[in-house]
Write a protein that binds this DNA or RNA. Structure first.
Length: 566
RNA sequence: GAUUGCGUAGCUCAGUCGGUAGAGCAGCGGCCUUUUAAGCCGUAGGUCCUGGGUUCAAGUCCCAGCGCAAUCACCA
């Protein structure tokens, strides 16, 4: 932080605590031990390879179930009952049931003696496998009987149903896909501890099918965004994640270092300055969907690395970007109706009211076009009860609100604070809302309005109370840009100046000449949260950052003169 | 960063007034050819997050720390 004295925080000794057993071995519980014993038995006594092999012709659970034919099932059932009554073997040729080959993780196991029911789970759902002692080889029956929760099995057989109506595969063969050694979560309650769900996401994903569904939906949402952008003639580009200067936003960056070049580098906080260089180079319409990294706090809507889309269109402006954003988000919302239906989620949304309505927590967000548009100045007046340009009134309002540091702030910053306090809460969280024409003073990288220099051509879109993204008519005057950068650097404190540097090459690119342009940034994670009804950004990021566990080494056996005992 | 809450068996959770650590599922050994959280009989399983303190006695009360969550602050 501010004090970077030459005092090392930790002892440089770095002595590695010699552990008697590895953490994995230490955690070897009775359950794991019995699974290891079983693995050995499956391999040595039953002849199954515990880590499987290539399998061809596997059907997803959802496809396998569509192969079920009631008539084939009834015909076979009748034929086998008659054969049994007549004391003869059933005519195998008369069996018209489809034969399927499936694989999945054991999530239910019911041993009835000579008949074993298993539920195998794959990414598309659960499918029952019924294993009769009389229908499979002896070793396969033993495998089915002693399979553990979490094991991955491969099964083949005709698809029929049970007396209770459960569609199932009547197995004729069973083999081991992979033996699971770890203790599984509780089979009914599953894994509910949020910390364990994030730390052991690989368990969460199979134990809680909703989790996997959200990530499948996320993948399709991102695909749709790309198709939308491609169809509009945008070129997807990839710009540096490792940047010598962290520009394009004001966040604190992560720092790193390139050894061969002996050069400090920053993980990017935004791709903006490189995408603009693409416009200078002659690309008319570009976008990038990629990770940004910001060394800031973590909460329900912030993860240190997050996915953003930035879009730049030459000869566009913030109005162009507004139309694009509105169409994109509307189209995505429409597609979520079918997504939710397919995922078996609540669909009280309907298009009759002029647009799709999707639940987000307690809210029902209506994505009908057009989205709400409100001018910053009008919303301010409505919320604060005074004109934003009447600074005396605004400051009075700020003091009334208890914004005690008001006196230290520039007029427009006070306006901004009062706006966030009084006006933003007025935005209907159930309607996507563009707040337009921000004060120029709080938007340094935006082109000032041609009609009113106090304002600038910028909007922010709010959905569900979250800021999903801003758009600008981009500033492309190199002299003004340079002046703004210089001003920004002047205001930087000690900490900021360690990572904030003037990007002279970017200014130079503007001197070469960047066409007038509209630019847009959208937080993909937040958009996915809204569309998938997820409360936290961690629910839409597969492996969110958590604090590391097991930092017990510092005080392990080090030199301790702390008087122990009294 | 602040406040509040939580942390007990592999998992999901009880644990009263401070008095020998509990259940279900999972595990292990049995029985069962139509189960749907299957059932029945038997059995085993604990660093009560960590470290101090108070007390004859602490899972329980106090202090500090660690982790997680929520809210707030921060984040153009």
């Amino acid at each position: 932080m501010s004090e970077s004295k030459s005092e090392p925080k930790s002892e440089p000794k770095s002595e590695i605590a010699p552990e008697t057993a590895s953490p994995l071995e230490q955690s070897e519980s009775e359950i794991v031990a019995s699974r290891r014993a079983k693995l050995k038995r499956f391999r040595e006594e039953l002849g199954f390879e515990p880590y499987g092999q290539r399998e061809d012709g596997l059907l997803a659970r959802s496809d396998a179930r569509t192969r079920f034919s009631e008539s084939a099932h009834v015909a076979f059932d009748l034929a086998s009952k008659e054969a049994k009554a007549a004391g003869t073997a059933a005519n195998a040729a008369a069996d018209t049931r489809a034969v399927v080959r499936v694989a999945g993780r054991v999530v239910q196991h019911r041993d009835m003696g000579k008949l074993v029911f298993l539920f195998l789970r794959d990414a598309t759902g659960d499918l029952q496998i019924s294993v009769s002692k009389s229908s499979v080889a002896a070793n396969a029956f033993e495998l089915a009987k002693h399979a553990d929760y979490g094991d991955i099995l491969v099964a083949e057989g005709p698809i029929g149903r049970t007396n209770k109506g459960e569609i199932c595969v009547w197995a004729t063969s069973i083999s081991l896909g992979t033996k699971s050694l770890a203790a599984p979560p509780e089979k009914w309650h599953g894994l509910t501890d949020p910390e364990l769900r994030y730390r052991r996401r690989y368990v969460d994903m199979y134990a809680n099918p909703e989790t996997a569904k959200v990530f499948a939906m996320r993948a399709r949402i991102v695909s749709r965004i790309r198709r939308f952008m491609d169809a509009r003639g945008f070129l997807e580009v990839e710009t540096p994640v490792l940047q010598p200067i962290a520009g394009g936003a004001a966040a604190r960056p992560f720092t790193t270092h390139h050894n061969a070049l002996d050069m400090p580098l920053f993980m990017r906080i935004a791709p903006e300055l490189y995408l603009k260089r693409c416009l200078v180079g002659g690309m008319r319409k570009v976008y990038e969907i990629n990770r940004n990294f910001r060394n800031e706090g973590i909460d329900r809507s912030h993860n240190p690395e997050f996915t953003a889309m930035e879009v730049y269109e030459a000869f566009g402006d913030y109005g162009t970007m507004m139309e694009l954003t509105e169409s994109l988000i509307h189209d995505l919302a429409v597609s979520m109706i079918d997504e939710r239906r397919a995922a078996g989620l609540r669909v009280d949304a309907d298009l009759a009211e002029g647009g799709p309505t999707l639940p987000w927590g307690e809210l029902a967000i209506n994505y009908a076009k057009p989205f709400v548009r409100v001018k910053f100045e009008d919303l301010f007046r409505q919320g604060a009860g005074c004109e934003m340009r009447d600074f005396a009134a605004v400051r009075a309002k700020a003091r009334e609100l208890g914004l005690h540091h008001e006196a230290k702030l520039d007029d427009w910053l006070v306006v901004n604070e009062v706006f966030e306090e009084c006006a933003e809460p007025l935005i209907d969280p159930c309607r996507p809302t563009f707040v337009t024409d921000y004060p120029s003073a709080v938007s340094p990288l935006t082109r000032p309005s041609r009609t009113d220099p106090a304002l600038c051509e910028r909007w922010d879109i709010f959905i569900g109370g979250m800021e999903v993204g801003p758009a600008y008519t981009e500033l492309n005057d190199p002299d003004i840009q340079l002046a703004k950068f210089t001003e920004q650097l002047k205001g930087a404190d000690d900490e900021e100046s360690t990572f904030r540097t003037l990007d002279e090459d970017f200014v130079e690119s503007l001197r070469v000449g960047m066409p007038p342009a509209g630019g847009l940034g959208i937080g993909i994670d937040r958009l996915v949260m809204l569309l998938t009804d997820s409360a936290s950004i961690r629910d839409v990021i597969l492996f969110p950052l958590l604090k590391s566990m097991g930092a017990s080494s510092p005080d392990a056996g080090a030199s301790d003169e702390s008087g122990k005992g009294a």
